[in-house]
Simulated assay, not measured.
Amino acid sequence: MPFAYIDVETAVQRDGLRMVVVGGVPSPWSEAAKGILHIKGIEWAAVRLAYDSETLKQWTGELSAPALMVGQERPRRGWADILLLAERLVPAPSLLPEDPAERALAFGLAHELCGESGLGWSRRLMYARHLALPLSL
């Protein structure tokens, strides 16, 4: 789904939901956050991650993506925080089970896939190490 980026200065002054995303290349974490917002039908403004932007670092607390900002609330950067924010903003359709045991299982499975040291995290590190290896014939 195509979208227009707004600059950081505009995003800081704007109300509503803004999300810092990696631009130009697909990022699994940014794409997942976009998917959550799409399913929930939540409108948002895109801000391109710029590693040299002091304004962006001050606003979001670090230079990483995705980072969701709503109003003057704290940044949401982790998968669980992003999901819970979307659930709070638009309760239906719910992306989490209502039953407490099923909800706990869903969070546990998601952590194993999305969380630090989870499958996605580990695969990213494997890929980065692979690229850093010297090429030999």
Rank of each mutant, 00 (worst) to 15 (best):
L113M: 07
W79R: 06
G61M: 03
L125C: 10
V8P: 05
G24S: 00
E98A: 15
L85D: 00
W121A: 03
A106R: 12
A32M: 12
A65V: 06
A104S: 14
L84F: 07
V70N: 06
G41W: 05
A110H: 00
K34L: 15
R77L: 14
E54H: 03
G71N: 09
Q13L: 06
W59D: 06
K34I: 14
S30E: 11
S122H: 13
D15F: 00
G16Q: 01
M69T: 02
T10Y: 01
R124S: 15
A45L: 09
G41A: 08
P26M: 05
P75V: 11
L95I: 08
A67H: 10
L109E: 12
M19H: 13
C114V: 05
E54K: 12
P75A: 07
G108Q: 11
Q58S: 13
P91F: 01
Y51S: 01
A65D: 10
L37A: 07
L83G: 04
G61Q: 11
L63R: 03
A86T: 09
E98G: 11
G24D: 11
G23P: 06
C114E: 06
H111Q: 12
M69L: 14
E43R: 12
W29R: 13
A86H: 08
L125W: 15
K40D: 07
K57V: 00
P93H: 03
G16D: 06
S122G: 01
T10S: 14
A86K: 03
A67G: 05
P28C: 08
A11P: 08
K34C: 10
V12S: 02
L85N: 01
H111V: 00
A104K: 12
A11L: 08
L89F: 03
R76M: 13
Y51Q: 08
D99H: 05
L63F: 01
L113E: 10
V25L: 11
H38C: 09
S94V: 02
L105E: 14
L105C: 02
E31L: 10
A101I: 10
L84H: 09
V8L: 05
V8W: 07
R103P: 00
P66T: 07
P97F: 08
I82F: 08
A86E: 10
V8G: 09
Y51K: 02
I39R: 07
P66Y: 04
P93I: 09
S122K: 13
V47E: 07
T10L: 01
E87I: 06
H38R: 13
A45P: 03
I42Y: 05
E9K: 14
S122R: 15
T55I: 02
Q72D: 15
E31S: 14
V12R: 15
I36F: 02
G115E: 01
L119A: 12
L95E: 00
V20G: 11
D52N: 09
C114W: 09
S30G: 08
I39C: 02
S27D: 15
R74A: 13
Y51M: 09
V70T: 01
Q58P: 00
S53I: 02
L56Y: 04
T55C: 00
I39P: 03
E62N: 10
E87V: 04
V21R: 03
W29G: 02
D52A: 08
A86V: 05
R124G: 12
R74S: 09
L113Y: 10
Y51L: 11
V90M: 08
L109I: 13
Q13G: 09
T10F: 00
A106W: 11
A50M: 07
E102H: 11
L37P: 04
G118Y: 02
G16T: 04
E87W: 05
P91G: 07
D15P: 15
K57N: 10
